[in-house]
């Protein structure tokens, strides 16, 4: 069975841990953590990921800049990106989706919702 690699980019250790717990419910999904955009890009440069889950408001490099960079990366330009953020305004959602995010989930998260979206984007049941 295929194994998938997911990168979680989130500055809050609590939210990272929560996402790791949630994504542990998805079979054959290997999760790597990064605590800001720069750390995320470093990890993306060193390995291939099938899915990226990112926050927007992060120190050093925010999620929107990260999406822009990922979409110009030949290796990850088509990798699905899920944005998980406290920003619930429609314009924030549009902006993230316009930049190339595939899904937009607002905090506080409901783990089943995140799991469902991850499965949908990876095409697994």
């Amino acid at each position: 069975m295929a194994e998938y690699a997911c990168l979680i980019i989130e500055d809050s250790p609590m939210m990272r841990q929560l996402l790791v717990f949630a994504l542990a419910r998805v079979r054959n999904l290997r999760v790597t953590e990064a605590d800001d955009g720069v750390d995320g890009l470093r990890k993306l440069a060193n390995a291939r990921f099938d899915l990226i889950v990112t926050d927007i408001n992060m120190p050093i490099m925010d999620g929107l800049k990260l999406i822009r960079r990922v979409r110009t990366d030949p290796v990850h330009k088509d990798t699905p990106i899920i944005v998980i953020t406290t920003e619930g305004a429609q314009e924030d959602r549009h902006r993230a989706l316009q930049l190339g995010a595939n899904a937009y989930i607002t905090k506080p998260i409901q783990a089943p919702q995140v799991i469902a979206k991850v499965k949908e984007l990876l095409g697994v049941s």
Partner: peptide
């Protein structure tokens, strides 16, 4: 599933 997620939280 929801209960598990809540407990995890």
């Amino acid at each position: 599933e929801m209960e598990l997620a809540n407990l995890a939280g």
